[in-house]
Computed example of a mutant assay.
Amino acid sequence: MANNGYGYGGLLCLDMETEERANRLMNLLQNYSQFGFMAVSLGYYETLMSCSGSSTSSELNNEEKELAGISPGLVRMSVGYVGTLEQKWNQFEKAVFRLQDFGLLNKN
């Protein structure tokens, strides 16, 4: 599946370090900037996101997660093909700036 405006969707990962911060980011992305939807599976044409450590990789123990590079705050996002790339980027930035306003993200 592809969008003529920018091609195929892609996968983006962001390590928020803690599950609490990951959930805060996903909540803002879904409910504040309408970037995408929280889900346990990333297979859909809309943008979906999940906190891998507590969802898709929850069957792994902590040592296995560490070996795989899955931190408690790892957010995986499957960027869908609905909308334009510019729109998705603006929605993502809007949520990140909001996190910075809350002091939950370093401004560097």
Rank of each mutant, 00 (worst) to 15 (best):
S78N: 10
V79N: 12
G10V: 00
F97A: 03
G36Y: 09
N4W: 06
L85A: 12
Y45T: 15
M49H: 08
F35R: 00
A22C: 04
A68R: 13
E59P: 01
L60P: 00
M77D: 06
L67G: 02
S33E: 02
N90T: 06
S41C: 11
G53P: 05
S54D: 04
G80T: 06
V40Q: 13
F102Q: 15
G53S: 13
R21G: 01
S71I: 03
S57E: 11
N90G: 07
Y44L: 08
L105D: 15
K88P: 04
S41L: 11
M38H: 07
E86Q: 14
G80D: 05
G103L: 11
G73P: 04
A2M: 09
E59Y: 15
Y8C: 10
E63V: 08
E59K: 14
L14N: 08
F97V: 02
E17V: 10
K94Y: 01
T84M: 07
F37C: 04
F92M: 10
L29K: 00
Q87N: 12
M38C: 12
N23V: 01
D15Y: 03
M1E: 10
N23R: 13
A39E: 08
K94V: 02
S58I: 15
G43I: 13
L74A: 09
L74E: 07
M49Y: 03
N90D: 13
K65V: 03
S41I: 05
R21V: 02
V79L: 14
E63L: 08
E20V: 08
T18H: 05
G53W: 03
L42D: 02
V75W: 01
D15M: 03
E20L: 08
S41T: 14
T56S: 15
Y44W: 11
S57V: 03
M38D: 01
N4P: 14
L29S: 02
N31W: 04
M26F: 02
N61K: 06
M16D: 05
Q87D: 14
G9K: 00
